[in-house]
Nucleic acid binder design. Structure first.
Lengths: 234, 234
DNA sequence: CTCACTATTTTTGTCAACAATCAATATGGA
DNA sequence: TCCATATTGATTGTTGACAAAAATAGTGAG
């Protein structure tokens, strides 16, 4: 359940700020804060019982990750990627993840395999019990942990940002509900990787990501900007 | 000479701050500010005739790009990547650039080719006149522009960060002088891409990046932390 | 000369109050 | 009713002074 490896996404922030950033990222990733949600500084400061200055630093950091939009004078809100961004982001993921499976930095150990398999099993369970939130989380974790294990920290950090942005994209443009990653695909990919079938694994991953892309509809009416800061807890 | 495409690396910063960030990035990239250079806030504020508060925001932004280290209480300095980081960064570049040439987002137009060829020609000129600084700059621009043209904005932003960090790595660990990118390689890569020889292009790029890596010596004594803020002009 | 300790100076971190800006509402005339 | 304008309220942006911490310089004993 816990993040496989503490990635140093905290660069430049003190622990308290890093914690706040993590909470907000999590809330965005799990769509408790949909794109467009306003993020007033004082609200957040009160929520995390900290000062406005610190909130400000965190918002700047998150805006540099492109998951928060920071318009001067108008404050911060959860980012709403343009269709063009969406295509670029998904294309980037294809390049990165397909490329990585094709030319992995290191091979998957048996231990690694067990770890990833466990995530997939949990995905199945969440699918059965209908826990959509947990399914989203697990799906992201599969992609991220696979990247860490077959790649390295630096690659994983890029990947983390892309996954978060993908979460925003799906929230904005998903054509039909329940279109998060297909657990079945994850299983096939993992097996191919385990057996060293590099070409097959990367091909599957490419198709998997394309499928996500094809389930988007950019002509969708952008949902109205929600306000209120809510439910940051877990 | 000018950056091919204005990448929105200014997210969350006002224009003035974005300009400052660009200047510092440039100075770091061209090694006018070697790794370890101290970056006192008031110094920078005076240099750019701005306030300490703004400098602070810029330093936070740059620290999130991993090119500035921001230790609490001790101020900012140009980052000094660990050998482990160095390996991860170069591995990431291999995955990204090789993967991109193997599975390009779009094909190179004749116009694009001319643009890139011009850069290579300038590289040759700089090599002859011995203008090492310009050579470094051009070399980085070749890799970056190629990424933009064959990929997209999002990929290019990741690439920009990786190239900057590579510049730090070379400054720290280069075994022998004059080991910046070999212009010859660039030429061969470009020709392969132009002719649509995808496999060949990606193979060459992989070798090219490995060559850089093999010219590093991690046992090198880390050069003493230089101080003084100097020569930000161009 | 070196070490340990103290004092000084520089630099960073923080805060609260104020100014500027934007969003929302209210007002008034056609 | 509708639009334009003015007022209000809420939120963000900035400043400067101060506190805290670290680097530096200085002092003296061994």
């Amino acid at each position: 359940m816990e993040m496989l490896l503490e990635m140093h996404e905290s660069a430049g922030l003190i622990p308290e700020e890093a914690h706040m950033a993590r909470c907000i990222r999590e809330a965005i990733f799990e769509r408790r804060m949909p794109p467009g949600t306003k993020l007033p500084e004082e609200h957040l400061a009160a929520l995390f019982s900290t000062t406005r200055g610190r909130v400000r630093r965190v918002l700047l950091a998150l805006s540099r990750e492109h998951i928060v939009a920071l318009r001067p004078g108008r404050g911060a809100m959860v980012a709403r990627p343009e269709p063009e961004d969406a295509q670029n982001i998904l294309a980037a993921r294809r390049v990165l993840e397909v490329g990585l499976l094709e030319h992995p930095c290191r091979a998957l150990t048996e231990e690694n395999y067990i770890h990833l398999k466990a995530i997939i099993d949990k995905e199945h369970k969440s699918h059965e019990t209908g826990d959509a939130l947990e399914l989203i989380r697990l799906s992201g974790q599969f992609h991220l942990d696979l990247t860490v294990l077959v790649g390295n920290q630096v690659i994983a950090e890029m990947q983390r940002e892309l996954i978060l942005r993908t979460s925003l994209i799906i929230a904005l443009f998903e054509r039909q509900k329940a279109t998060c990653c297909l657990t079945v695909d994850h299983g096939m990919i993992l097996e191919a990787v385990r057996q060293g079938r590099v070409q097959e694994a990367s091909r599957l991953m490419g198709r998997h990501l394309l499928e996500i892309e094809h389930n988007l509809d950019f002509k969708m009416s952008p949902p109205p900007a929600t306000s209120l800061t809510m439910l940051l807890s877990r």
